[in-house]
């Protein structure tokens, strides 16, 4: 009975995805129609300059945003778990959690308005302001990722005994040495999982990117969304099959990292 529920749920989740991957190898011009085995759409994808350019931009934004998110979110999660009471702790906690619960359209619009105001201020002060594009998308995605990394790191530290760090300090290690030799190795799996989470979130985001980007910053999801609005193409299936392969590799890596050091749900966010 319980097995049946799980099997049905997994079938619902996976059936469309498996069909999509299968039909990515179909030669037919109509998506989800079988026209014989072929790599035609993968070749079409490889020759699609706009798609490749957008993919390359998205990968760079995602890597940059995830790295910033790990640095800032790691500090935030550490502070929330280990600094005890400090001034404005409640405000800090709410701000660090806000990007997780704000609807995407609200995050996107409010960040765009911030960038417009900052651009206006820069224009008034220097007579010149940088345009919106990849950089603004990166800042927005780093903010989203920060919140996810902070949650994962905080959860990881909450499950660890502070006595480990205290013992190191008692034995004469300075605060920096304690952090480098005890805390950092302990939270490394959470940081790695957080980086992957921030990276995939950035690669998947249409709404926030559409708001904050400019003419020169069309990310891959923005391009795919505009194509889907006009109609499905087999190229999108081929792209999805490739993304799924990559995601499977990443999740496999994450599962290995977490499987050695944590339990299910530690990275659930």
């Amino acid at each position: 009975m319980r097995r049946l529920g799980l099997a049905l749920g997994l079938a619902f989740l996976w059936l469309p995805i498996l069909l999509l991957v299968g039909y990515a190898f179909s030669a037919d011009r109509i998506p989800f129609q079988w026209g014989g085995l072929s790599l035609r759409w993968f070749r079409a994808l490889a020759a699609n300059g706009r798609m490749l350019e957008a993919a390359w931009l998205s990968l760079r934004i995602a890597a940059g945003a995830a790295t910033l998110a790990v640095l800032l979110g790691g500090l935030a999660g550490w502070a929330l778990a280990r600094f005890g009471r400090f001034r404005f702790r409640a405000l800090f906690g709410v701000l660090a959690g806000a990007p997780l619960v704000l609807p995407e359209v609200v995050t996107g619009l409010s960040l765009l308005l911030l960038f417009v105001v900052l651009q206006g201020a820069a224009e008034a002060a220097f007579g010149w302001a940088p345009g919106r594009g990849a950089a603004t998308v990166l800042l927005a995605h780093a903010t989203l990722g920060l919140a996810y990394v902070a949650v994962v790191v905080q959860a990881r530290l909450a499950g660890l005994d502070p006595a480990l760090e205290e013992a190191a300090a008692d034995l004469g290690a300075g605060p920096f040495t304690v952090f480098r030799t005890v805390t950092l190795p302990l939270i490394a799996p959470a940081l790695a999982a957080g980086w992957l989470l921030a990276f995939t979130l950035s690669l998947d985001d249409v709404v926030v990117a559409s708001f904050v980007s400019g003419p020169a910053g069309t990310t891959l999801p923005m391009l795919v969304f505009s194509q889907l609005r006009m109609g499905l193409t087999p190229e999108i299936n081929a792209l999805a099959a490739m993304v799924l392969g990559l995601a499977a590799l990443l999740v496999g890596a994450a599962a290995l990292i977490l499987g050695r050091n944590g339990r299910v749900g530690d990275s659930a966010g």
Binding site: I17, P31, T200, V206, I236, L239, A240, V243
Partner: peptide, 13 residues
């Protein structure tokens, strides 16, 4: 983690 746009594309198909 598959990307949610391609999954929506699958439902369209």
């Amino acid at each position: 983690w598959t990307g949610f746009l391609p999954r929506l594309g699958a439902w369209i198909g």
